[in-house]
């Protein structure tokens, strides 16, 4: 009989623990109502253990002292809309690049690949100046500047070079026969995209949705630059309220962070099946 291989399992278990430590620390600390105990535990292994006085006090503080519910729904709206519009726009662009032959196609593709390597920090300030000048139709009239709004947090992030690239890679690998069969059946490009290509693209849709969701959900830099006040603030911005206080309430911060993290876990669980499949298939297709 073959001996069970223990070493790889140990290594995997260690890696899992390594990645779970911060989550565990956050989760456990969120329930430690006594701030002094939390600070004492931080230097020891007790930081990861649910010991001492455990309560929901920190969560009550979050509910009382911050507008968590408003920030939560702002995040859901802003991120949900960005991801949804992004899926549509980026997949359509990628499909056009993958299947239509038009002059300049290679240049566009090259530009998109080049854009992937430019970090957001490099364009943040020019983008801020731009959105500050752009017009928007609001309450029956044109106004200048997008600051302090929802759309300023959505529109600049809808088109995403990396998402286009992921979709493009997936579409060029789709068998062309299917689209040609649909063409023979009388389907035009729109119909083929909606009825044939998109339903077959669940793995890449899941991948793009998860990656975009994670990037937008945790983004702080842009909201800090374009949003003032609570009304349009998303979760990372709302969490900043705690850092302006003294003494800093780490228990409250942890409770807030835990609540803010739950939706990302939920999104991953929902898309996990396709997401994992996509990662696996991209690994074996070569």
């Amino acid at each position: 009989m073959k001996r069970p291989q223990i070493a790889p399992y140990l290594l995997h278990a260690l890696l899992v623990l390594f990645f779970l430590f911060p989550l565990l620390f956050m989760g456990v600390s969120a329930f430690k109502g006594d701030e002094m105990q939390l600070l004492r535990d931080m230097g020891t292994l007790r930081a990861f253990l649910p010991v001492g006085e455990l309560s929901l006090q920190n969560f009550r503080d979050v509910a009382d002292r911050t507008r968590f519910d408003l920030a939560f729904w702002n995040s859901v709206g802003v991120v949900g809309l960005t991801v949804l519009l992004g899926l549509l726009v980026n997949s359509m662009l990628a499909y056009a690049l993958a299947r239509f032959r038009f002059p300049g196609r290679r240049w566009v593709l090259g530009a998109i690949v080049a854009l992937i390597v430019i970090p957001f920090e490099a364009i943040a300030v020019p983008l801020l100046l731009l959105v500050n000048q752009l017009p928007w139709f609001s309450e029956g009239q044109w106004v200048q500047g997008w600051l302090d709004s929802y759309h300023v947090q959505v529109l600049p992030f809808v088109a995403n070079a990396f998402s286009v690239y992921l979709f493009y890679q997936f579409f060029v690998a789709l068998p062309k026969d299917l689209e040609e069969a649909a063409q023979m059946d009388g389907a035009g490009p729109w119909r083929i995209y909606w009825s044939i290509v998109l339903p077959l693209s669940k793995p890449v849709i899941a991948t793009v949705a998860v990656l975009q969701f994670l990037a937008r959900w945790g983004d702080l830099l842009w909201p800090v630059m374009v949003v003032r006040g609570d009304e349009h603030a998303t979760l990372p911005l709302a969490m900043q309220t705690f850092f302006g206080q003294f003494p800093r309430q780490w228990g409250d911060v942890m409770a807030f962070a835990l609540l803010a993290t739950l939706p990302t876990l939920l999104v991953f669980l929902v898309f996990q099946r396709w997401f994992v499949r996509s990662v696996i298939s991209s690994a074996i297709k070569g």
Binding site: P175, Q183, M184
Partner: peptide, 16 residues
């Protein structure tokens, strides 16, 4: 293609 009155059977079957 759709206006030619032809139907095609593909080597790969190309079933959706």
């Amino acid at each position: 293609p759709a206006e030619r009155g032809v139907a095609m059977v593909f080597q790969s079957y190309a079933l959706y």
